[in-house]
Design a protein around this nucleic acid. Structure first.
Lengths: 74, 74
DNA sequence: AATATTGCGGTTATAAATTACCGCAATTTG
DNA sequence: CAAATTGCGGTAATTTATAACCGCAATATT
């Protein structure tokens, strides 16, 4: 059945997120420290495992210290 | 239990989406015709009922004919 | 070398999004 | 007026995200 219908999108998003994080020299745990997500889940997001929700995008932006719009610039 | 933890965010997003749609003079059904979402669900999104997923944001952008980043500019 | 940090995979439970319909009441259009 | 359009609420089934952990292997730090 529909398993992983949006994988390509999730991977693109994950790579984008990781690029932003690494450019800032942040660790997964330091991002997690600034938002309501834990590092293992951020890792999964970066690796394209999740089709994240709006609220999660907002948390990521908070954790990364960027505007949410930037997370969709990929 | 946690029912509607992100309601404020969802409502803001919904209002933003609707504003874009109305500015373009589109009906819910015409937006739906350009993407993989049905009009009743777009209505629910506009009314803040859903914490939409990334793939849904991308579909909305397609349906509305705008860049996905614009959907997070609110 | 010993310790800490880091990335990441796994798990289980729970809440929720999505799909794909129906149908109505109100407004618009011909 | 008649017909079409429109916004939107409801539903059921299915899939999925998320939270909140654990722990390990590799790398970095002291």
């Amino acid at each position: 059945m529909p398993k992983q219908k949006h994988e390509a999108l999730q991977i693109q998003f994950g790579e984008h997120i990781q690029k932003i994080r690494l450019k800032k020299g942040l660790s997964l745990r330091s991002v997690a420290a600034n938002c309501e997500l834990d590092d293992s889940n951020i890792s999964k997001i970066e690796n394209g495992k999740f089709n994240v929700q709006l609220s999660t995008i907002v948390e990521l932006a908070k954790g990364l210290g960027v505007e949410k719009r930037e997370l969709l610039e990929f």
